[in-house]
Design a protein around this nucleic acid. Structure first.
Length: 552
RNA sequence: GGGCCCGUGGCCUAGUCUGGAUAAGGCACCGUCCUUCUAAGUCGGUGAUCGUGGGUCCGAAUCCCACCGGGCCCGCCA
């Protein structure tokens, strides 16, 4: 929960008392530039009242509210404008006492955010990278909002894909050369050969059975090759600022007997077909085990979620849109068959594809995260060297890396996750406009001003405040509203949109309000606004993994 | 066949949940501003029947229905 001086709530409460018909929806942040908060009086007007009467009543009731600068009636809207001093006060108050705006109340609820969970059969590519970026940003936002959050990776070491990787690796990889590249080659090769050779299918089946039975050699080998690939996935993710707290191996639920317990607890719903166990949802059969007795992913995922429900208040799963059906069937099992309610939320996203079509690890038509990052850093370096020929090599590297990581993350997180996305190099390597470098650049310029003026902002006076100063102040003040919405809706793109708006507001301020050459009173005030701005940019960029710089 | 998602200027998006002020940004294009704090920036301009057709409503990009286009799912794969 967020703690700050919530003027919007205050006004809404007063209006609620004043008008029985008032609905919370009637008062909102204004998006059209007419006001700070706007009160739509259509609903209240529904009786026989006329706007002037309503307005008069509001004026009378809000008389003497010192945080309000003015209230105006414009058509069917009553517009509230807050005074700059109060906006500054509310931000300053939290920053001085708590060091952050808004402050938070630590919530006892524990949340698991499961993301990435990509099969350990090859390096992570950008078709899937949306998953990690969404999950990581959402986890950070929920943590900032006051929840206790753990990120989780569900390692699929038990299915077909890993069994075929294992079969391929044993055939084509030397024991002492189990590198990600070699394993990936083996994985692609075995898939090609399986299309022509049926006997390989039997070998894969056998591996699955041995692994489930806990046969020592197979377990050891699979763990080993999965770990090799998992390490490389993790290192790729670390390069863009993502680390995951917990790794849970699918097979562990087989070993502990949890999958059997799930079967037991669902016993009354289970049917059989040739030895394979399944449940039904309407006309749909959902298989839990194969006829050879091995478990299916759906069963292992139920066990995994039951484990999460024991340790967390709720579980968030970031899943590709092709897993939507899986998610809905899971919800059905928990809600309808197990009487477990409202413990799980899904975030679905559409895979990133290339102009030539969708990416596939098996087919090899992918752009890996490593490749993307490498190329983006190179491009950033070119730009930095052109713009800042004065910088030393270390600074160039540092800036280029920060720019690249931030640009990649931002370009993905800022879009609505359900929107189809086609990756284009030209767009990925553009550092202008609505991008992370735009946000970073504005911050660097603000930092530069403070380096030159010093940071004396004592006893600022908020009189004769320039329009651009006030607009920026109001933007800054609104941060908690966007943070809250992003957390409640699990939409990190709301923070991204806020940051772009904030940056535009700041750029306007930068142009219109010189600091260095201002008179002493104005200067102190603007320095304080700059400090607020920097603080909130630091806070919000961190939620998206954007790496800000003092200089660029 | 059934289900879900997406469709907003030439291109990429915000706004859709919760209907309300001239549909908001970016890219590209044309023009402005570096003897005020970093031009990865600023300001202005050209450019939108909000996929199509109905409906509800005082009011629809937003809600409802139908259709069209794109994606995804309906497996003893994950």
């Amino acid at each position: 929960m967020l703690i700050f001086t919530d003027y919007l709530k205050d006004i809404a409460e007063k209006l609620g008392k004043l008008f029985p018909d008032f609905d919370k929806k009637d008062l909102a942040l204004d998006r059209t530039g007419h006001a700070d908060f706007t009160f739509r009086i259509f609903r209240v007007l529904k009786g026989k009242r006329n706007p002037e009467d309503v307005f008069a009543q509001v004026l009378k009731d809000f008389q003497g509210m010192d945080y309000i600068e003015r209230i105006t009636l414009e058509g069917p809207y009553i517009n509230f404008r807050l005074n700059a001093e109060s906006l500054a006060f509310s931000i300053r108050n939290e920053l001085e006492h708590k060091g952050m705006f808004p402050d938070i109340f630590q919530d006892p609820e524990r949340i698991s955010v499961e993301h990435t969970s990509t099969n350990p059969t090859g390096p992570i590519h950008i078709g899937r990278i949306r998953n990690s970026i969404l999950g990581d940003s959402t986890a950070r936002i929920l943590r900032r909002y006051g929840y206790r959050v753990t990120t989780q990776y569900f390692v699929n070491d038990s299915g077909r894909q890993v069994a075929s990787l294992c079969t391929g690796a044993r055939k084509y990889c030397m024991e002492d050369s189990l590198t990600t590249e070699n394993l990936l080659d083996a994985y692609r090769r075995i898939h090609r050969e399986m299309e022509e050779n049926d006997s390989l299918e039997k070998e894969v089946q056998e591996v699955m059975q041995l692994y489930e039975a806990g046969e020592e050699n197979t377990v050891g080998y699979i763990r080993k090759i999965c770990s090799v690939i998992l390490d490389s996935i993790n290192s790729s993710l670390r390069n863009i600022g993502i680390t995951i707290d917990d790794y849970t191996w699918e097979s562990s639920f087989i070993r502990t007997g949890d999958t059997v317990k799930v079967l037991d607890s669902l016993a009354e719903h289970i049917k059989e077909e040739g030895g394979a166990k399944y449940i039904t949802n309407g006309d749909r059969k959902i298989f839990l085990t194969r006829s050879n007795g091995t478990s299916l992913y759906f069963l292992r995922d139920i066990a995994y979620h039951l484990y999460k429900f024991q340790n967390f208040t709720w579980s968030i799963d970031v899943l590709g849109e092709n897993h939507k059906d899986h998610g809905e069937q899971l919800s059905y099992v928990f809600e309808d068959l197990m009487d477990i309610h409202e413990r799980i939320r899904f975030m679905y996203y559409s895979y990133v594809s290339l102009e030539s079509g969708s990416m596939s690890t098996r087919k090899g038509n992918t752009v890996t995260l490593d490749e993307l990052l490498q190329k983006t850093i190179e491009e950033a370096e070119k730009v930095v060297r052109t713009k800042r020929p004065d910088l030393d090599e270390g600074s160039v590297k540092n800036i280029s890396e920060s720019v690249a990581v931030s640009a990649i993350r931002f370009s993905i997180v800022r879009l609505n996750a359900s929107k189809q996305m086609i990756f284009r190099w030209g767009e990925a390597l553009n550092f202008e406009g609505d991008s992370a470098p735009y946000i970073m650049y504005a911050y660097a310029r603000a930092s530069s001003i403070l380096r030159k003026t010093g940071s004396d902002s004592n006893n600022p006076e908020y009189i004769n405040v320039d329009a651009a100063e006030r607009d920026l102040l109001f933007r800054l003040y609104c941060y908690p509203y966007f943070l809250e919405e992003a957390a409640n809706k699990l939409k990190p793109e709301i923070v991204a949109g806020y940051l772009l708006d904030l940056t535009k507001s700041y750029s306007e301020f930068y142009r219109a309000c010189p600091v260095l050459t201002a008179d002493e009173v104005t200067k102190r005030r603007r320095i304080e606004i700059l400090k607020f701005y920097r603080k909130i940019v630091e806070d919000s960029t961190d939620l998206l993994g954007i790496k800000i710089l003092e200089e660029m």
